[in-house]
Design a binder for these strands. Structure first.
Lengths: 338, 338
DNA sequence: AAGCTTGTCGAAAACGTTTAGTGTATAAAT
DNA sequence: ATTTATACACTAAACGTTTTCGACAAGCTT
């Protein structure tokens, strides 16, 4: 192992000088800085992150907490994509990420304990059940924290603009002449509450009655459940002309239910999803949906969190809202032309 | 911060005794062990992983390298799923994972440098271009290494059983009376080579001629490219009766191409995929494919790598082959019944 | 010439652990 | 009664950094 001691010996200076030279302090001459830097490179020196962390209390590691309901782990499309955006930005700023889990080293610990054990510099939380005590403990801890799609606390939060996204989607559907629009909503959460609210407001604004039989509770990411619920909707005495699925992936269930009845999309019935994942745009017909800007959400979360860590910003601060984009697709029939 | 020093003071013993008590050494009495453990718990003590790592040279961190060609990051289905299996097993054994990247902290480093900087205890490599010099440097380094789907080195490797998987798939298709079977293969790699080999052998074994026009080069994870290639296959003077796509996700492209010609699956043409992702089984009709046991692959890689780290096994050792499972689905027409 | 500033460097402590070496008391063996 | 073994606990060094503080020289200012 080549350490600063090695460099010090090679250069004939003290380890203090080496350290300061490498960290570009201003009480060491330009000449020695050069010398130190060069020999460091020659010897293939790499700083020891543990020793540095021990001394400075900065690990340049960010803890990531994510536990979705379906236990799909990293396979969860929305999260994986947000995380990827986060990771890229964090790495750019010199941070690595560490997954926060419960059972490290056989003896189990809480999320907070894991963070303390690893000494992460900050924490980002996404896609969890925010009512869990373990999660709340983390949010209310002394760590710098950023949450995704969850507000109502004094930490940093980045949210997808579900309010405007859903509003635009429903307005678009209405503009195509639909009045009987069903919504299979996902697991109860802030996200779902916002979407539901926008759904209702958009209908009301257009003078359309909100029907309880068109509003059914489903699950995110679960085509099987969604297929079942779609079938129920289709067999109502007065079935809807359009069905909004919890998300794009669940929309597969909606498609299956419709096709299994021998009906076609969008001629017999229109559908929409939410997310705008790649899959939704390679399906035929292309799914009408709202693309969530996952990369930006992740990136913003990373950038804000790191700024907080570096104390370049202060909390509380207002949530950062990341706009989505309506993808019109081909699954909404235009009823106005009939 | 409560450290062993705090505990030592509270218990009236030296820090050495505290350390040994907590690590269950046998030169400290059961009584003091009890006392130390209890006060440690009371005070909410957590070991400082950096300090420990500095002293022991073990970080309980495993580096994960993954860079797929499509730059899809964590969104890559196969990898995300393998990684998840890896992560779960690693956590169970007390290890966290760290993503290995190139540009940490603005000043860029090689993969190997990143690993040295973070002092990972071992490295797992999957889904990368194994011909990259940076990757080879890592494989040939002194770190304990495990690779997924790549052999030919002296380190640990875990591979999906593409040889038998593809063989079973093609045999199944042949058993349904098909003789004109096309294969759109993915990016050139060990995986593709094995599948291609099995494809050819299975055909030959059945006395079926291997036609160059049925063997076309495509890309993994790319429905658009696959759609194009499928169209070409369909417009051959003597088109195939069955098309095998590079993977399940690309198979969407195959489906699109077929349906856009007004043909139906499997009545007019049969198809198959590879991977067995969730999506493939919620599509209608269900895709015929080979499920790769990603969880097991990840789990085995973790378990073997950690055993290597703990020196409970030695390299070189033969590759661990993880069997897949033929999912018969509904996309292969039975031609023998006509 | 004395004091002051500025620039450059090193000694040493500290971060929280682990561990080798040493000492001491008690029990067992001669 | 002396030696030997055993059990237990402590001292101190070490891991690789960062950082405070003081030292010293050279150049200024009065």
């Amino acid at each position: 192992m080549v350490s600063i001691k090695t460099i010090a010996a090679a250069c004939g200076v003290s380890i203090a000088t080496v350290s300061k030279a490498l960290n570009d302090h201003n009480d060491v001459s330009e000449a020695t800085k050069q010398l130190v830097r060069e020999t460091a490179k020659e010897l293939g020196y790499l700083p020891n992150s543990q020793a540095r962390a021990l001394k400075t209390n900065k690990t340049f590691n960010i803890g990531v907490l994510f536990v979705d309901k379906a236990e799909s782990g990293l396979t969860h499309n929305y999260f994986a994509s947000v995380l990827d955006g986060f990771k890229v930005e964090a790495e750019k700023m010199g941070y690595d990420i560490t997954f926060i889990s419960k059972n490290l080293d056989s003896f189990s610990m809480t999320y907070l304990e894991h963070c303390k054990y690893r000494n992460v510099d900050g924490i980002v939380i996404a896609c969890v059940d925010f009512s869990q005590p373990d999660v709340l403990e983390l949010i209310n801890s002394d760590f710098p924290v950023a949450t995704v799609d969850f507000t109502g606390h004094e930490k940093i939060s980045v949210v997808s603009d579900n309010i405007n996204g859903m509003r635009e989607l429903v307005e678009y559907i209405i503009s195509k002449g639909h009045k009987k629009i069903a919504y299979i909503y996902g697991d109860l959460s802030e996200v779902t509450a916002n979407r539901m609210d926008s759904y209702k407001k958009a209908l009301s604004a257009a003078g359309i009655e909100i029907r309880e039989d068109y509003l059914v509770e489903g699950k995110f990411h679960d085509p099987v459940s969604t297929e079942e619920l779609t079938k129920k909707l289709l067999s109502l005495p007065d079935p809807p002309t359009c069905i909004i699925a919890p998300d794009d992936f669940s929309a597969i269930g909606t498609i299956n239910a419709i096709e299994s009845k021998g009906l076609s999309i969008p001629n017999d019935i229109s559908i929409a999803g939410y997310d705008g994942i790649y899959l939704s745009q390679v399906l035929k017909p292309k799914l009408t949906t709202v693309r969530q800007d996952t990369k930006t959400i992740g990136k913003e979360a990373a950038s804000l969190l790191i700024n907080l860590i570096k104390k370049q910003i202060k909390c509380p601060c207002p949530p950062k809202i990341v706009k989505g984009e309506l993808l019109k697709g081909e699954t909404i029939k235009d009823l106005t032309k009939e």
